[in-house]
């Protein structure tokens, strides 16, 4: 293990003139971040299992996976946004709006094919994303301001659309509810959809030019402009993708919980941001990995499931989530400092 570590370090140092003899602890950790997350997940699972043996049952695991699916779908979009140094606080509202419109449509037309409902929700989310992307990329509004403003517009529209009423389980056709409860080859649809999205996202960020340009824009916007990357278009694109995924997630959400309300998923954007920063997506932009956010989302999903099982009051959950975000971003910052310090020590001055 130790030898391999040195080998890696030597490879990274490359020229050899710095001699990879000293690395700070945090620099080492950066390499093993995913392993560390995995270890935390395992530890939590073992801990909870000891307190409550019904935790690691097939049913519960399936349940966790299905719950995590929506979170992880949204994390993909949020990761892209954060990589470009942005943030999107509007997704809870976008999710509610697209879910509500899909629910109202199937309520009015029970015969509608579930796929059409999915597409409808997707389209609504996409439209929301396009608006935000326009405001951020073309008008040049700070992402935090643009999304804070549109969050309220979308939330308000959700209430307007529903007239303040709920769409509840008995008003939805079974075919619609089966989007989330049905399964393909014995695996829950939500999980299937999430896996497909992850596969596509992985291909997008690491094997297409546009995907890499997203990283370039976040890493150094000025030189991206000089190397001829259309930074505004990239910004617009990431918010649009975020919106589209949120629209999709909205339909899945409403189908899964079999209810659409005005305050659906209120504050859910915070969980998504938490999953991203836990997964090592740097809030300063330019870095973030698909494998990281999967683990971040899974860890958060397990926590959400496990806390009630070991009798932690639901009123603690807000606080815990906030502390997780704060701890994760502070931790990321400290790791980054360690790496920078490590690079300095290589200079031998």
């Amino acid at each position: 293990m130790k030898q391999k570590m040195f080998a890696d370090a030597a490879l990274a140092v490359g020229t050899g003139q710095g001699a990879a003899t000293k690395t700070t602890i945090s620099a080492k950790f950066a390499k093993f971040r995913e392993l560390g997350l995995l270890a935390v997940i395992v530890l939590i699972c073992i801990g909870v299992q000891i307190r409550n043996p019904s935790f690691l049952t097939w049913e519960n695991i399936n349940d966790i996976a299905a719950n995590t699916a929506i979170l992880s779908i949204l994390s993909v979009g949020m990761m892209l946004v954060i990589i470009t140094r942005g943030i999107d606080l509007s997704i809870g509202a976008t999710l509610a709006l697209s879910g509500m419109i899909a629910a109202l449509t199937v309520k009015a037309h029970p015969g509608l094919h579930p796929l059409a409902a999915l597409l409808l929700g997707f389209a609504v989310g996409l439209a929301c994303g396009i608006v935000i992307g326009f405001l951020v990329a073309k008008v040049g509004i700070l992402p935090i301001i643009a999304t804070l403003g549109m969050m309220n517009v979308f939330r308000g529209l959700t209430y307007e659309a529903s007239g303040g009423k709920w769409v509840s389980a008995h008003q939805m056709p079974d075919s619609f509810k089966q989007i989330a409860t049905g399964s393909l080859l014995g695996i829950n649809n939500l999980i299937v959809i999430a896996v497909v999205i992850y596969a596509v996202a992985y291909y997008f960020v690491s094997h297409t030019r546009t995907g890499r340009q997203v990283y370039a824009v976040g890493s150094n916007p000025e030189s991206a402009e000089i190397s001829g990357i259309k930074t505004k278009r990239i910004l617009w694109l990431v918010y649009t993708i975020m919106g589209g995924l949120t629209g999709l997630a909205g339909v899945l959400w409403v189908s899964k919980f079999a209810s659409a309300q005005g305050d659906t998923a209120s504050g859910y954007e915070l969980s998504v941001i938490a999953a991203c920063v836990l997964g090592g997506v740097s809030i300063a932009g330019g870095s973030g990995k698909i494998s990281g956010i999967i683990l971040g989302a899974v860890l958060l999903g397990i926590l959400n499931n496990a806390l009630p099982m070991i009798n932690v009051s639901p009123f603690w959950q807000n606080w815990i989530q906030g502390m997780i975000i704060l701890a994760a971003v502070v931790f990321n910052a400290l790791v980054k400092r360690g790496i920078d310090r490590n690079n300095l020590m290589r200079r031998k001055i």
Binding site: F315, N318, W319, I325, A333, R337
Partner: peptide
């Protein structure tokens, strides 16, 4: 933590502060 923007810092304390309020008073 100058690496962190005020957005992300106050975003997390926003959740934490209200979280404490919930812990104290439940609903």
């Amino acid at each position: 933590f100058k690496e962190l923007s005020s957005v992300i810092v106050t975003l997390s304390t926003m959740i934490i502060y209200r979280g404490i309020a919930y812990i104290l008073l439940k609903d």
